[in-house]
């Protein structure tokens, strides 16, 4: 199959990849860069396990053509930690035990960082609504809600 060359910024680094025209972004990130944090599950943009940040906005990597990443800035869960330190949202997910199997966790964490960037002090209802496109089949929702609130406090105290 013909390959299209794309160049983009991936977790802060300039990268180049050859992708098939039909390939989606999460497939390309896994195949070309061995980034396994984003994973395809429902394949319909409903479950949120394939969440990737493109130009500062979360998209469903399974519904996003890899070629559309050309010229963009892409962040995956692997790019959240800085200088060997986890992001406050990641820390909060650990301290609140906001997962069991962990399959939905990268998507939950990326969406939570987006929420807190847009709305640093969300209500329970706003958190539930924002994360309604992320499914956790272990049912860790109460802990996830707690983790987002804990992360919000941590981020606020950093300022």
């Amino acid at each position: 199959m013909e390959q299209l060359r794309i160049r983009f910024l991936l977790n802060g680094e300039e990268v180049e990849a050859g992708v098939a025209p039909v390939e989606n972004l999460v497939q390309a990130l896994r195949r070309c860069f061995h980034l396994y944090g984003g994973r395809e599950s429902c394949g319909q943009g409903i479950c949120g396990t394939c969440t990737v940040i493109v130009n500062g906005r979360a998209v469903s990597g399974c519904l996003y053509l890899a070629v559309l990443a050309e010229g963009t800035e892409v962040v995956t869960v692997e790019g959240l930690s800085a200088g060997g330190r986890l992001h406050p949202v990641q820390e909060a997910f650990i301290s609140c035990s906001a997962f069991q199997c962990g399959f939905c966790t990268p998507g939950m964490i990326l969406m939570s960082t987006q929420l807190l960037e847009e709305n640093p002090d969300p209500t329970d209802q706003q958190i539930r609504h924002y994360l309604s496109g992320n499914l956790c089949r272990c049912g860790a929702y109460p802990e996830i809600l707690q983790a987002v609130k804990t992360a919000a406090q941590a981020l606020a105290s950093q300022k």
Partner: peptide
């Protein structure tokens, strides 16, 4: 718009 798909779908 708040209830079309989810945030990721509306972003794209």
């Amino acid at each position: 718009l708040h209830i079309v798909g989810n945030v990721r779908v509306r972003n794209a």
